[in-house]
Simulated scan of single mutants.
Amino acid sequence: MTVKDTAQTGGTGTSARQAQAKVVMDFSGFGTQVDVTAPPAADTVDMTDQVSRQSGTSSQTN
């Protein structure tokens, strides 16, 4: 993942640095019945494009 280092460039966002992230997820309760309702669309937001712009990558697939 490449991220713009705005703190080091005075907020201009012109510098790019490599960063690594480690994500750990613990899954449990497989097979457990749940009753879930998705939130209304007005209460959600798709962050894909914003994250892509921040990281300097494209969210579009070919």
Results as ranks from 00 to 15, higher is better:
residue 10 G to Q: 07
residue 17 R to H: 09
residue 29 G to H: 03
residue 37 T to N: 10
residue 36 V to M: 03
residue 37 T to H: 09
residue 56 G to Q: 11
residue 33 Q to F: 01
residue 51 V to N: 15
residue 60 Q to K: 10
residue 38 A to V: 03
residue 51 V to A: 14
residue 16 A to E: 11
residue 30 F to I: 04
residue 52 S to H: 00
residue 52 S to T: 01
residue 12 T to C: 03
residue 37 T to E: 10
residue 26 D to V: 12
residue 9 T to Y: 08
residue 20 Q to K: 07
residue 60 Q to E: 09
residue 21 A to C: 04
residue 46 D to I: 05
residue 7 A to F: 11
residue 11 G to E: 06
residue 10 G to H: 06
residue 26 D to R: 09
residue 13 G to K: 07
residue 54 Q to A: 12
residue 59 S to H: 15
residue 21 A to N: 04
residue 10 G to M: 03
residue 10 G to K: 02
residue 14 T to V: 06
residue 45 V to M: 01
residue 3 V to I: 08
residue 43 D to L: 00
residue 17 R to V: 15
residue 31 G to V: 02
residue 29 G to V: 00
residue 60 Q to P: 00
residue 22 K to Y: 12
residue 7 A to Y: 11
residue 19 A to H: 02
residue 45 V to S: 00
residue 57 T to L: 09
residue 38 A to Y: 02
residue 45 V to P: 00
residue 45 V to E: 00
residue 39 P to N: 00
residue 7 A to V: 11
residue 55 S to L: 13
residue 11 G to W: 05
residue 41 A to W: 01
residue 11 G to Y: 05
residue 28 S to R: 14
residue 1 M to L: 14
residue 13 G to V: 10
residue 11 G to F: 04
residue 59 S to I: 04
residue 51 V to M: 15
residue 13 G to Y: 09
residue 34 V to F: 07
residue 2 T to F: 08
residue 18 Q to N: 14
residue 4 K to H: 12
residue 25 M to C: 08
residue 23 V to W: 13
residue 28 S to Y: 13
residue 17 R to N: 07
residue 8 Q to Y: 05
residue 32 T to V: 14
residue 2 T to I: 03
residue 1 M to I: 15
residue 7 A to I: 10
residue 26 D to M: 10
